[in-house]
């Protein structure tokens, strides 16, 4: 038993070093000046070369907190609806048999098979006609539509794994389908819901294209868009960019840690009959 423990931890630790080393590099380089980043990228900043100029520039020269809040709002609201509507649709598509069910399932998956930027112009025209350009609502609507396919395909798979007996028992007791979905199935899906949340949140959080063309107005920019001002055509302020993007990686990380508890919850929920 001991040998297995040792092997497991060694293997994992080795991989973690590989996974984290570049990230540590990003982090330590965010505390250097541009010159020092390229002079000695692998060296930890000494007491002389340590500088918070990158972080200072981020907060002084840009509305970093505002961008942060914007991204937070847009991402959170989008996730809530993607998970909610996605779960409902996944249930509707995998639980009941009716004609066209498979086609409907395929229809939802189409969304993952096409480059998302393809439909930008009609989306813009539509939003323009609804007077929604330069709003956060517009981005939320677009992200919901884009996140649903992934949400549905994942949740479909996990719903299929729920034992039939649980659902049939509830039906015997006269519980309505809606109540089964929300009170029995959703709690059982916690690991899947947590998984979907994380996978869907990250691309939305890091997205540049749609905020750029739909909501570029001052005060409305997302984090990724707002940071672009430090990336010029010819001049890139790397300490600032690294500082900004390091900070930007924190909310997804926190979200992940928070949701980890949900994932563990699933262990006990899934095993109880």
């Amino acid at each position: 038993m001991n040998k297995k423990y040792l092997l497991t931890h060694t293997a994992l630790a080795l991989y973690v070093v590989f996974a984290l080393l570049p990230i540590v590099l990003i982090f330590i380089n965010s505390f250097k000046s541009q010159k020092d980043i390229f002079d000695a990228p692998f060296k930890i900043p000494s007491t002389e070369s340590f500088t918070t100029i990158g972080y200072q520039t981020v907060f002084n020269n840009s509305d970093f907190l505002l961008y942060f809040v914007n991204s937070l709002t847009i991402t959170s609201v989008s996730i809530i609806f993607i998970v909610l509507f996605g779960g409902m649709a996944a249930w509707g598509v995998s639980e009941y048999k009716y004609r066209g069910r498979i086609l409907l399932s395929l229809f939802f998956i189409f969304g993952m098979m096409i480059p998302v930027r393809l439909g930008t112009i009609p989306i813009l025209e539509l939003l323009q006609s609804l007077n929604l350009t330069n709003t956060h609502t517009a981005l939320v609507l677009v992200y919901i539509a884009q996140g649903l396919p992934f949400s549905i395909i994942i949740l479909e798979s996990f719903i299929r794994d729920i034992p039939k007996e649980i659902k049939d028992a509830a039906r015997c007791d006269g519980v309505s389908e809606t109540d089964i979905l929300f009170h029995i199935v959703f709690p059982l899906l916690k690991p899947a819901l947590a998984t979907v949340t994380i996978f869907v949140a990250i691309p939305i959080w890091n997205d540049l294209w749609f905020p750029l063309v739909i909501t570029p107005a001052d005060g409305k920019q997302t984090l990724t868009l707002g940071i672009q001002q430090f990336i010029g055509q010819f001049i890139t302020d790397w300490p600032t960019v690294l500082a900004a993007l390091s900070l930007a990686a924190i909310p997804p990380l926190i979200l992940y840690i928070l949701l980890s508890k949900q994932l563990i919850h699933g262990l006990f929920a899934g095993s109880s009959k």
Partner: peptide, 15 residues
Amino acid sequence: GLGASYWSVQKPSTN
């Protein structure tokens, strides 16, 4: 949440 993002439509930007 939806209300908040709609509200951000109404609030005029300083410019």
